[in-house]
């Protein structure tokens, strides 16, 4: 019996999404094969690896994940600069935690002002993230879209209850959005269909919501694998958007990650590599060391 490599060609591509603007803009997606299958297809863009920046002092962070940012946590501009200049981040995720109506409840205007300042300070692409409160996120992200017009930010999370408002503002001001549907391929598709009625599909990134190692990782892994296969193998156009996994924070909340620095970094890095193997195109990390490890391994 003669061995012939059982290669599988796929005739469609995941959509390519451009984030940010100018020289430092980042492209994600665009592949016409399964993750890491460069032996049988093309993966024109490596995964986007983003570091988190909070708009307010972090609370209850484990010392080993606070340590890299200790000198900058009181100032999101300095924090963002450190991520780029010291840790080499090619993308950032600004989390507008202070807008949480259950917490500081900062106004959309203030949040947009902070976002403007931070995104002006460094020239890498930004994900701008709300607090998972549908109504408040809509107000905040619409204002951010206006104030940061033309910056091609990636705004999220956009969910069934607020997608119209946020996506319309994003469209008007030239931004992309993250469509979030929790752990369900069908809901992901439904939301994409709804968005695509008025929003360009190449400006949508999907977020199936990610769970950390030991806390539901396998559900995230399989949902992403399924979405990728619907898109590539079954050629479902509404499943061909790049996939985002925002998981660093969840990893560092686990008791295992808090036990030791090495264990924490691996907790995050193993989660990250797992999502990449499933087909994620964009990862949001909390610890620069985990990001660096993944970067060195996959390139």
């Amino acid at each position: 019996m003669k061995y012939e490599p059982p290669l599988e060609k796929i005739s469609v591509n995941i959509r390519e999404t451009v984030l940010g603007q100018g020289e430092k803009s980042v492209k994600i997606g665009g592949e016409n094969t399964l993750p890491f299958h460069s032996f049988e297809g093309s993966l024109p863009n490596s995964a986007g690896l983003a570091l988190e920046v909070l708009d307010t002092q972090p609370e209850n962070w484990a010392p080993s994940v606070l340590e890299p940012f200790e000198d900058v946590v009181s100032d999101p501009v300095k924090w963002a600069k450190k991520c780029v200049e010291v840790y080499g981040a090619e993308m950032l995720c600004l989390r507008l935690l202070s807008t949480d109506p259950m917490g500081k409840d900062r106004s959309p205007e203030e949040a947009a002002e902070i976002t403007k300042k931070v995104t002006d300070a460094v020239d890498v692409p930004f994900i701008v993230w709300g607090t998972d409160m549908e109504d408040k996120d809509a107000q905040v992200l619409m204002q951010v879209a206006r104030v940061c017009s033309g910056k091609n930010l990636l705004l999220g999370p956009v969910v069934k209850g607020n997608y119209e408002k946020i996506a319309k503002a994003a469209l008007e001001h030239g931004h992309a959005v993250v469509a979030q549907a929790s752990m369900d391929a069908n809901l992901t598709k439904e939301l994409n269909i709804a968005l695509c009625k008025f929003f360009p599909p190449e400006k949508i990134v999907v977020d199936p919501t990610a769970s950390a190692l030991g806390y539901g990782l396998e559900y995230t892994f399989s949902i992403i694998e399924e979405i990728k296969q619907f898109g590539l193998v079954d050629k479902d156009k509404m499943m061909q958007m790049p996939i985002l996994c925002d998981f660093g924070g969840d990893c560092w909340r686990t008791k295992e990650a808090k036990e030791s620095r090495e264990q924490g970094i691996l907790w995050e890095a193993i989660s990250g590599i797992t999502f990449l193997l499933a087909g994620a195109n964009l990862l949001v990390f909390r610890h620069p060391e985990s990001l660096k490890l993944i970067k060195e391994m996959v390139i």
């Binding site: 190692l213 990782l217 396998e218 036990e259 090495e262 264990q263 691996l266 907790w267 193993i270």
Partner: peptide, 14 residues
């Protein structure tokens, strides 16, 4: 342990 534990939990998940 700090290297093995994450890997063992990972195996259990997958």
């Amino acid at each position: 342990a700090q290297f093995l534990l994450p890997l063992l939990v990972h195996r259990f998940n997958i």
